[in-house]
Structures are given as structure tokens and as C-alpha cells.
């Protein structure tokens, strides 16, 4: 029997992706099911792409962003936060668990926090089970 493992796409912003690198340098272990996509800023991640990721088979999507308190400009984090909050509301409405889209505040030196948070998220997504959107959409009654 094939053991199902969650597939998680993480959009990491410029700063927090160096936090992800940090986790590697310092030898923290975190689950290998997280695939990171580096983007210039978390605020440029179009929510449609998050939806598309879910459609293409991701079980959860993670956005890592700079902590708002550490930013000189507050707007980007606010935008990301609002978008994710809106998207979670939408997913909830259409009957997909909202916890499949998450936001994680990571600074560039917080490799340890990233590793521990990601392990926790993977565990939680494992509890939610596979999303299997293809099965749900194509299945005929």
C-alpha cells in the first residue's frame, strides 16, 4: 500500500526564503513534502495561483511572509494577510477546508521556527487528509 503523504507548496518571499535556507544551513530537519517556490514578495502571489496549485494536486498551500512589525512598509504584509483571509473564506464557502491555505510569518534568520512550524503544519494537513480535488470534481454520481 502506498502511504499518502501531503504535498505542500510554499510560496516563500525573498526574505523568508533565506530563512528557509537558514534552516538548511543550521541542520534543522523538516518534512520533505514542502516544495518551495521563491517569489519576490508574498504580496505578488496572485490568489488564483494558490487556487491553481490546489487544483493541480497540492494538498495545502503555504505563504511565508515577512513579519509586519519588522517591515518598514506595512502594506505588503497587509495585502497578503487580507488576500489569504479572503481566500480562506472563499474556500470555506465552497467546501474545501480553509486550513489548507496558511500564512506563516518568517524572518530571514528564523530557520528553526520555519522547521518546527512546517512540521506542525504537515502534521495538521495529514489529519485533514488528501484534498483530491480531481476526484471530487470529476466523480459522477
Amino acid at each position: 500500500m502506498v502511504v499518502w503523504k501531503p504535498k505542500i507548496i510554499a510560496f516563500t518571499c525573498w526574505c523568508s526564503s533565506s530563512g528557509v535556507d537558514q534552516a538548511g544551513f543550521e541542520g534543522f530537519k523538516y518534512p520533505a513534502n514542502v516544495l518551495t517556490v521563491r517569489v519576490p514578495c508574498s504580496a505578488i502571489v496572485n490568489p488564483s495561483l494558490v487556487v491553481k496549485a490546489l487544483q493541480e494536486g497540492a494538498d495545502a498551500v503555504l505563504l511565508t511572509a515577512c513579519k509586519p512589525v519588522e517591515l518598514r512598509k506595512i502594506a505588503p504584509s497587509r495585502i497578503t494577510e487580507a488576500r489569504v483571509s479572503l481566500l480562506r473564506r472563499l474556500l470555506n464557502t465552497v467546501g474545501v477546508e480553509e486550513d489548507r491555505v496558511r500564512i506563516l510569518w518568517i524572518s530571514s534568520n528564523e530557520g528553526g521556527i520555519f522547521a518546527s512550524e512546517v512540521s506542525r503544519i504537515v502534521e495538521e494537513v495529514e489529519k485533514l487528509g488528501p484534498l483530491n480535488l480531481r476526484g471530487k470534481m470529476i466523480e459522477q454520481p
Binding site: 490568489p47 488564483s48 487544483q55 472563499l90 465552497v94 470534481m137
Partner: peptide, 12 residues
Amino acid sequence: VELFTFHLTRAL
């Protein structure tokens, strides 16, 4: 399966 993306994108 793309109808999911279609409708969610439009909703957003």
C-alpha cells in the same frame, strides 16, 4: 477540475 479554478478566480 479546472472549473474549480475558473469559478474561484472569478469569485476572487
